[in-house]
Write a protein that binds this DNA or RNA. Structure first.
Length: 491
RNA sequence: CGGGGUGUAGCGCAGUCCGGUUAGCGCACCUGGUUUGGGACCAGGGGGUCGAAGGUUCGAAUCCUUUCACCCCGACCA
């Protein structure tokens, strides 16, 4: 864990930004609130995509693609949906530019005004449900299990790299079902897929739960989420899965004939994760030396740094190392041999630590003579000398060990950062002095939730799926409550 | 939209208060040499409409006016 992360909250944004830039994950761009994802950052995203895509296929889903532009009128079909998104939409009003008659530049051609404005999608429920109407006639057309990889635009007032950008990359699953039960089952299944991905691949423990009505997706009947805890003690919503009921089917008139020849509205779900997961990854594991990547998502899992004085020595190292590289690649491990001669080993060590490469091998004259290689692990920064015999298996196990260790570390951090509060004073004290998750009783009303948010800046992150029934009193109103919910200050 | 800050070489910055040689430093880059087990060193070199526009002045990175962009804090955030 990065030292003093909780005490440097004020500078945490700066620290986070610097890391994103220095590790060459992304840069701010010329466009307000947008960012450039650099090749190294994108390579991590691609690994996430590949794994998620595999998991979607394994659960029976197919990919498809829908338009970027959505006619404005589509948004007004579902009342709470438009209310949720109207404030942050980019709107296309014209389709042409022309030379500025008063100067050298170009201006929007007033002649080219669109009759109906187009909205750059902030999410695709509307355009997809408008399309599904033509795909669905009978129960035999169901279920539809479709996922889209796309970019979306939300004109947020304040942005942060990866966590909240004006344009972001994501996937959005949109499914259509014949029954409520089946749709709910899908919703729960997909939040499970996300939780598995977060824990097994990103090495980030997450709480699975449902959102309070206030925090629900605009247009959803129920929103399931996974919530992760960052090292500064703030929560991050890492993924959501929504049970949409028949809201969108009714809004877009999507009906089907049942076996019994009865006309019924279709049941829907939608679920998504975004490049925000990159932010979660960075903030969960990084330390003062830079990024720490879990082996399963690291574009480079092993880097080999040769230590040499003369070209002949490099040649000798290369001869020793080539079979090792082959053997590692045979095991599906990605290896980089950094034989650049214009940088010193020390420089390279720092560079790869900054970029979070899980395992670093260093080999020089001394090692060649002894038949050894120096192995450094990024998570603990430990250095050990290994015999070259069967090195690929040892590295393979080491990578597994690092993956596991990162998860355990993050888990014990979360556990030690999860507190219970039974009074309002206790609640505020924990938020101000300890941060993290706070388990507390809530009377279940939106009014109380709102007041708590206003007075403490903390929101209900979720009502955990596994939370036990427990009699208690709401920390704010004192009214009776049947279970604890999880509060935190959040991104 | 409020409060604060920053724009000077690819990156990071000094210089601005108090106007005055040819606008400087570190990193990076190029050439040569020595180096290389935790961000090497020496020598030489290239790179700038000082965010933009207007004004004051003999003279503006520096003063005045206007404007743009970005960052941080807040409001906002399925």
């Amino acid at each position: 864990m990065a030292k003093d992360l909780t005490t440097r909250n004020e500078n945490y944004s700066q620290w986070y930004n610097d890391l994103v830039v220095k590790a060459e994950l992304a840069d701010n761009s010329a466009v307000r609130g947008c960012m450039v994802i650099k090749p190294y950052g994108y390579a991590i995203w691609e690994k996430m995509q590949a794994q998620l895509d595999k998991m979607f296929k394994e659960t029976g889903h197919q990919n498809a693609y829908f338009p970027l532009f959505i006619p404005k009128s589509f948004f007004s079909r579902e009342a709470s949906h438009v209310e949720g998104f109207a404030k942050e939409c980019a709107v296309v009003t014209h389709y042409r530019l022309k030379n500025d008659p008063d100067g050298g530049g170009v201006v929007v051609d007033p002649e080219a005004k669109l009759e109906e404005e187009l909205i750059v999608r902030p999410t695709s429920e509307t355009i997809i449900w408008d399309t599904y109407r033509s795909w669905i006639q009978s129960y035999r057309d169901l279920p539809i299990l479709v996922n889209q990889w796309a970019n979306v635009v939300r004109w947020e007032m304040r942005t942060r790299m990866f966590l909240r950008t004006t344009e972001f990359l994501w996937q959005e699953g949109h499914t259509a079902h014949a029954t409520s039960e089946e749709a709910m089952e899908e919703t729960v299944k997909m939040i499970g897929v996300y939780a598995d991905f977060a824990e097994k691949h990103m090495a980030i423990p997450v709480l699975k739960g449902v959102k309070s009505p206030n925090e629900r997706f605009a247009g959803a009947v129920e929103t399931f989420c996974i919530e992760a805890l960052m090292q500064d003690g703030k929560a991050l919503q890492a993924g959501t899965s929504h049970f949409l009921g028949q809201n969108f089917a009714k809004a877009f008139e999507v009906q089907f004939l049942t076996k019994e020849n009865k006309l019924e509205y279709v049941w829907a779900t939608s679920w998504g994760v975004s490049t925000r997961l990159m932010g979660a990854l960075i903030m969960s594991h990084s330390d003062d030396n830079g990024l720490v990547l879990p082996p399963k998502l690291a574009p480079i899992q092993v880097v080999i740094v040769p230590i040499f004085k003369k070209e002949e020595q490099l040649e000798e190292i290369r001869k020793t190392v080539l079979p090792i590289i082959d053997a590692l690649k045979q095991k599906g491990i990605s290896v980089k041999f950094d034989d650049r001669d214009n940088l010193t080993p020390g420089w390279k060590f720092n560079e790869y630590e900054l970029k979070g490469v899980p395992v670093r091998l260093a080999i020089g004259q001394r090692d060649i003579e002894n038949g050894t290689i120096e192995v450094a692990r990024r998570d603990t920064l430990e250095k050990t000398s290994y015999q070259l015999v069967d090195i690929e298996t040892k590295i393979e196990h080491l990578l597994e060990n690092i993956q596991d260790n990162l998860y355990q570390k993050a888990l014990s951090f979360r556990e030690s950062s999860t507190h219970t509060a039974d009074t309002w004073e206790e609640f505020l004290d924990i938020l101000d002095n300890k941060a993290g998750f706070v388990e507390a009783h809530w009377d279940g009303t939106a009014e109380t939730e709102q007041r708590i948010k206003e007075e403490s800046k903390a929101t209900i992150r979720c009502i955990p799926l596994d939370s036990k029934e427990e009699e208690g009193k709401c920390i704010f109103s004192g009214k009776p409550s049947k279970q604890r919910v999880v509060f935190a200050r959040a991104y």
